[in-house]
Design a protein around this nucleic acid. Structure first.
Lengths: 205, 205
DNA sequence: TGTACATCAGTGAACGCGCGTTCACTGATGTAC
DNA sequence: TGTACATCAGTGAACGCGCGTTCACTGATGTAC
């Protein structure tokens, strides 16, 4: 293996980032910066600066800025999915878990506004409902699987798809409206929007 | 009055914008640019350039760039409201009109992506439900009034508010997910998401 | 009707900024002999 | 164990860019006398 702990050489100001290669350091630092970002924009130079490396060094690990941001988006998607899974597991299986995952979606967006926006912007399109076994990213897979498991067996796939998108739209819209300052963030309101009995209580988020 | 048609003087390259003062020309041109914008960002300099005026001239009419963008956002909000009103009027009063206004919301977003985003970003927060007679911008007033008129008399205002926000969230979320490329834009899907019978069919968008 | 003047919407040059990206380079590393 | 070498992740300087904003100015306008 080409690198070990001794390759970290702080004195010479080279490889001052610890534990792992520069690629990981860039992603970690990018995640940290985007958490604290008041502003909307994260620059390649800022990430490099913060890691303590020249901007050009980034190009050893990412072809361009978009690739770096995509890596952050992918990390964001994973964390969002984790947050939803944790919430759903706590609430138990079934409709309660589904609703909990919906609330977690909105709360994640409010807790990590810039990351959430970046994630939605840089996650490429996938038709999460076209191929049932598609290796789709976590939040969308959770959505598809839960809706499928909650609906009566043999439900028309198109109806499943519409129900899933309805649920996703509701929580995504609430999150965006709160992030954009159109609706005051309010925990009770999140619950009220997510929890309402409807025709098919199970599959409406 | 200080200006008339004769103040338009194309030969000298001054006041080459027609009909009205520079402020209106900047807004009109800004609206045009934002319609055609592939990219997300509209710059003050680009608007000035397109109008045929120096960038500094903009500062005679707007204190800064944000003020110019706010003016565009306000125009965007008005157009969104108009589109919804037209659609609702065509569909008739009641639940059918409400649903039509929801579909119009999503379609407006898809037809004018950059303007829609700008509008949501630059429209300042107002609590549209706090004061029933508040002079709230058009799309939100339409929402509040329609939900109120569709719900049974004497419905708890908090329930009205939650129902309205639920409806708004649903169409807003669908619009944003389609704009961000997470869901393929599809007219039939818009209808399917908006039109579903629920516990209170009248007040769920 | 003509002249002096104040107004003020515009100009154009400049400031300072930070950005993404390219490029020739350097110097530490692991490897082959 | 020691030496020559290829590799390649990093440097730092530079490129060209467009941005928002400021500033002293100019010149057309309408008005007062």
């Amino acid at each position: 293996m080409p690198s070990n702990a001794n390759t970290v050489n702080i004195k010479s100001n080279k490889r001052a980032y610890h534990h792992g290669d520069l690629r990981s350091a860039l992603i970690e630092t990018g995640m940290r910066l985007i958490e604290n970002s008041d502003a909307e924009h994260l620059s390649l130079r800022e990430v490099a600066r913060e890691v303590g490396v020249s901007a050009a060094a980034v190009y050893r690990h990412f072809p361009d800025k978009a690739a770096l941001l995509s890596a952050l988006a992918s990390e964001g998607l994973e964390r969002l999915g984790d947050a939803q899974n944790v919430a759903a597991a706590k609430a138990g299986r079934g409709a309660a878990g589904f609703k909990a995952s919906g609330r977690a979606y909105v709360r994640f967006a409010l807790a990590h506004p810039a990351l959430f926006r970046l994630t939605m912007t840089y996650t490429p399109f996938t038709d999460h409902f076209a191929m049932p076994e598609a290796n789709t990213p976590s939040p969308m897979r959770l959505l598809r699987e839960t809706v499928t498991s909650l609906a009566p067996d043999g439900t028309d796939p198109e109806i499943l798809r519409a129900a899933a998108i309805r649920a996703w739209s509701r929580v995504h819209g609430l999150a965006m409206l709160m992030l954009d300052g159109q609706i005051l963030p309010d925990d009770a309101l999140i619950d009220a929007v997510v929890d309402d009995a409807q025709q098919w209580p199970e599959i409406h988020l």
